[in-house]
Design a protein around this nucleic acid. Structure first.
Lengths: 311, 311
DNA sequence: TACGCGACTGCTCAGATGCGCAGTGCGCTC
DNA sequence: GAGCGCACTGCGCATCTGAGCAGTCGCGTA
């Protein structure tokens, strides 16, 4: 019996039958050490595959690579399920878990909005913090369909953290610069923005340049605007601001009319957590990560690998 | 963090990161014993999946069930690959492996013929035995297409075992009983049949009742005969003899005209090895195994599970 | 033939691991 | 409120396991 076959037999007896290497040796007529060595070989050669099968499993090795490669303070990578549809939920869960065990517990948490973050909010455990203040960091949506999701999201996170939410009562993008300036200088709005920029941690996601974007759906941008942004090299948005692959603002005049914390605020934040999932968002994710917009990345394996592969 | 999630973390650190339970304890702020217990839980609950990925891997647990359930001397079960087309080869390989390590090494080995056994023969390693005599146990085929496969098969096994083959120079099924008796009483043929019935071990496969059967292809039976056999309750054949689900001869007059060792010879043999693979053969396999026609079963996981599930 | 080299084997020994046990805290019952 | 059972924790100890080491064998070379 050649060594490879022998290694298979040893692995079977060890892992499937819970025999000790000693027993296996006796059984197969080899020494206990040889059994051990064959077992090691079986593992090395990939004959034995050990997998952690759990919706909340993580990919620590990839996380380490991400941290090193992009100088991140932390990274969380969850396996992409065969069926990509579940990936968003898994990443959201991971974000909720991360936030829950984040130390020191942030007193003021700045949050953006979007489908992904809504998912995260729903997954926050009750009592994840005691007395957190959740501040919206960019203008809210009022989707015609589901009004108030942005506000709900912030409130949910706040409530579960035994604290309260500070909402930003403003559209995401104003049609005219003067209006934006006016709103911005309103006492209550200014106060919110102040709190926002002082947050201990920011939690946000990223959007893609696409006619289905929430900005279009909510009427802040027209499909033509999206085309224009795309033509100018935009690959997605972060806290409502459209960036190119280098993380630079694509359309300064549009950006001027966008209400919320600036990208620089994110860049200089001690903790800026990007939550992003799915194939469609690989490009934005890369832009955000490489341009230092986040210190923590929470994503799926597919996205992580895409980030590590090229560039 | 609840215990399940903790168990996932422990498993990741243990299996993916090669940390000791001690280190894991320190890392997660739990005692080394708790880490160990969580690890055990993770394995029990199936969070950790350990798999032996190898074409020659086996399913020892199922083998044990088969032995116990059907009182077999031995059983070999290989995992069914996703792509069922490879299953035949794997089972054949397993049969070759089994024969190679069979102790005591049979001096006289009785073999049947067929696609499966041809596969086995091709996979026998050179020098698997020293001086074995391989005897054909039922009438040979002379497929118009590939003449002499039956003989080739026996010779191959014999050559690789440094021995010689004893061929049965006769058709599988004779048209008339008198002819069969005549051939059977021929000195050389009788001598072969004698050797065959004295074999230390028998190696054979099983066929299904089907118009594509080798018996039809070789002209021993007509498609109508097959229909008739099926109508009478035949589910397949063993060494050329058609049996019903209980392992009984379906058509005694046909059986009388079939040349080769009897089913009773197989039933009373010390070692009768059935090699059978694939979904189509589940029924025949069940008939053979439940009616005590074999002492050793070599098959794929799908077939094994089918046998264990019902009845 | 003698020598050197590499592959392999079995061994020692320290470190890692699992089992059984006793102690502790919690909730339930009477 | 006392008593009881149960789940969980940390620990001692026997066992299992991996790393490093020296001895052996086969082979090619000087």
């Amino acid at each position: 019996m050649d060594d490879e076959l022998l290694a298979v037999r040893v692995a079977e007896l060890y892992y499937d039958e819970n025999k000790t290497q000693d027993e296996i040796g006796a059984l197969l007529g080899i020494s206990r050490w040889k059994a051990g060595r064959l077992l090691a070989q079986a593992r090395e050669r990939g004959i034995v595959r050990i997998e952690i099968v759990h919706p909340r499993a993580r990919r620590l090795a990839i996380e380490r690579s991400l941290r090193e490669r992009f100088g991140l303070a932390d990274a969380v990578v969850v396996p992409t399920p065969e069926n990509e549809s579940g990936v968003q939920g898994r990443v959201a869960q991971a974000a909720a878990d991360f936030l829950t065990s984040l130390r020191p517990v942030p007193r003021v948490l700045g949050v953006s909005w979007g489908r992904t973050l809504t998912d995260v909010a729903e997954r926050m455990p009750d009592g994840w913090a005691t007395g957190v203040t959740v501040v919206q960091i960019n203008g809210g949506v009022s989707l015609n369909r589901r009004p108030g999701t942005a506000a709900t999201l912030a409130s949910t996170i706040a409530q579960r953290g035994r604290g309260h939410a500070v909402l930003l009562p403003s559209p995401a993008i104003l049609e005219r610069l003067s209006t934006k300036k006016a709103i911005e200088s309103d006492r209550t709005v200014a106060a919110v923005l102040d709190r926002a920029s002082e947050a201990n941690a920011f939690l946000y996601s990223a959007g893609v340049v696409d006619a289905n974007s929430a900005h279009v759906e909510s009427g802040y941008l027209r499909p033509e605007d999206m085309d224009e942004l795309a033509a100018r090299g935009a690959i997605g948005d972060v806290v409502g601001r459209y960036i190119d692959p280098n993380g630079n603002i694509v359309d300064p005049s549009l950006d001027e009319r966008t209400l919320g914390v600036s990208l620089d605020t994110l860049r200089s934040a001690a903790t800026a957590i990007l939550v992003v999932a799915g194939t469609a968002k690989h490009d934005v994710a890369r832009a955000v990560v490489t341009s230092g917009l986040c210190t923590v990345l929470i994503t799926d394996e597919g996205t992580a690998r895409a980030l590590l592969e090229d560039s």
